[in-house]
């Protein structure tokens, strides 16, 4: 039954939103193009990997003694606003409007919730593939093939990647797992309060992260220069995965507990 439930959620939650994935890809591509225009000024030929690092490098946190040093990361917030927009109403609507049609067919409210969480895993993987695809496409249009790191791009930004061999741990594991954890939190918030509240809380967390540096705010895990990849003593993959893991586990268990008591009224 769980497999059938996931198939249902894939159809209603992911396939039906193909245009949002396309919009996400185009947005990533547009920011990648902008990054290339900037690189062209300095006659640098970055790869798709450089562009991804550049897009998610983020900004320095707000410091009272460096008022002019703070730069609001518009590309980062624009991408994240869309990333967490996909399922703003999904769980809420599925419960509020369609539960009398679907829940008795699932035979178990726990399956309903677990399926939503597993759909979220697939969603994050799709986002990762779409990001890579569109950024790589723009890179190819600029004559850059392959995913190789070029340190001169970041020297220009006065940033440096400290652990080149760990780039993919951050980009391919830590960031997707953080998106997974935050989306699952967003889905859970839809179960216990309103969808808008869930979305606003997630965006609020990200907004706080753009201003403040904390090892405990998951939004910081999506900003690469807060991590050990680009900062001495920054947040490590282990810290990221532990906090994200706790969020995923707690929201999964709380969701199951909430579902037991939840009624289709």
């Amino acid at each position: 039954m769980l497999l059938r439930a996931i198939r249902y959620d894939l159809k209603t939650g992911i396939f039906r939103k193909w245009f949002l994935y396309l919009a996400f890809g185009i947005l990533m591509g547009a920011f990648a193009e902008k990054a290339y225009q900037w690189l062209n000024v300095f006659q640098l030929k970055g790869s798709a990997l450089d562009v991804l690092l550049y897009l998610f490098k983020g900004n320095r946190e707000f410091r009272k003694d460096e008022l002019e040093g703070f730069e609001f990361p518009f590309p980062f917030m624009a991408i994240m606003t869309l990333v967490f927009f996909f399922f703003v109403y999904y769980v809420y609507k599925e419960w509020k409007e369609r539960s009398s049609l679907t829940i008795p067919r699932f035979q178990d409210k726990s399956i309903w919730w677990i399926s939503k969480c597993l759909m979220n895993v697939i969603h994050v993987l799709v986002l990762l593939v779409v990001s890579l695809l569109f950024v790589s496409l723009v890179a190819m249009l600029h004559g850059s093939y392959g995913l190789i790191y070029h340190s001169q791009v970041f020297e220009l930004l006065e940033w440096q990647v400290l652990q080149v061999n760990q780039i993919w741990i951050y980009l391919g594991i830590c960031m997707p797992v953080t998106v997974l954890a935050l989306t699952q939190l967003e889905l859970y918030l839809q179960l216990i309060c309103s969808p808008v509240v869930g979305y606003v809380i997630i965006l609020g967390l990200l907004l706080i992260s753009t201003f403040y540096y904390s090892k405990w705010i998951p939004g910081d895990y999506l900003i690469l220069n807060r991590t050990a990849l680009m900062r001495e003593g920054g947040i490590t993959p282990l810290q990221i995965l532990v906090v994200d893991g706790i969020i995923i586990l707690v929201t999964l268990i709380l969701g199951l507990w909430t579902m037991r008591k939840k009624e289709c009224l």
Partner: peptide, 26 residues
């Protein structure tokens, strides 16, 4: 069950809506 106004998917045909529900239990 038919309770009040069931929310089917707006962009699906009647058949596609029922197919989606029928596939849950198969």
């Amino acid at each position: 069950i038919l309770l009040e106004n069931p929310a089917f998917l707006d962009n699906y045909t009647g058949y596609a809506n029922l197919k989606l529900l029928a596939d849950i239990q198969g």
